[in-house]
Amino acid sequence: MTSRDLILGRIRAALGDTGTVAEQPLPRRYLSAHAPADDPAALLDLLHRNLTDYRALVHRCTEAELPSRIAELLAARGSRTVAVPAGLPDGWLTAAVGVEPLPDDGSLTAARLDAVDSVVTGCALAVAETGTIVLDGGPGQGRRLLSLVPDHHLCVVRAPEQVVASVPLALPRLDPARPQTWISGPSATSDIELDRVVGVHGPRTLEVLLVTV
């Protein structure tokens, strides 16, 4: 007998007493959102607050200002090299003179990325209530290691179209077939005396640019 058969057999034997239990529909009486899902300005403010609360650096700008804001933020950190995921909109880095873009053609290994100053990405969506941005490897987001190894992650969120109120509203918009990383603030730990300290293995600086039209 294989262990698969053994385990499945043990489960069926263990559940022998439940055959007569009538199946109840799952109670889903919880809220689909705790914030007003139909008020984009309020949602954006909430996202901003919650990101800041977990020590992300948050900035706002318009679509037209985006290239210059990215350039300023990279310059402010003294970044000389920036990893560029496939499909990042062409215009985003045009103003960042003096910063060497490293387009990800599949050759950016973890070891190379370890020496890169920054990475700029877009996102799949952001969750206002929890201050979370979700990356799913789509255009402008790149492979998972791109937003992981460099110590500075600059992420662009387009509002209102990429901002949802809550986790229950986020999941239906995401494709389970794609690998996802949900990011809520920079890397942190509570392992020393259960007190939260920012900055361990992931990027120690997370900057989020909230872009409106």
């Binding site: 919880y30 919650n50 977990y54 599949g106 969750v127 209530e129 929890t130 201050g131 979370t132 490897g137 492979r143 998972r144 290691l145 986790v167 389970p176 077939a177 794609r178 690998p179 996802q180 990383t181 949900w182 990011i183 809520s184 603030g185 920079p186 890397s187 942190a188 509570s190 939260r196 992931g202």
Partner: peptide
């Protein structure tokens, strides 16, 4: 929603990874 608030008392923990099987060129 239940786990992060119960565990580290956060609205959401810093990182959540979700994957199914393997993805070509990523991971």
């Amino acid at each position: 929603q239940l786990l992060p608030r119960s565990s580290t008392a956060e609205r959401m923990n810093p990182y959540t990874s979700l994957w199914a099987g393997t993805t070509r060129g990523d991971g």
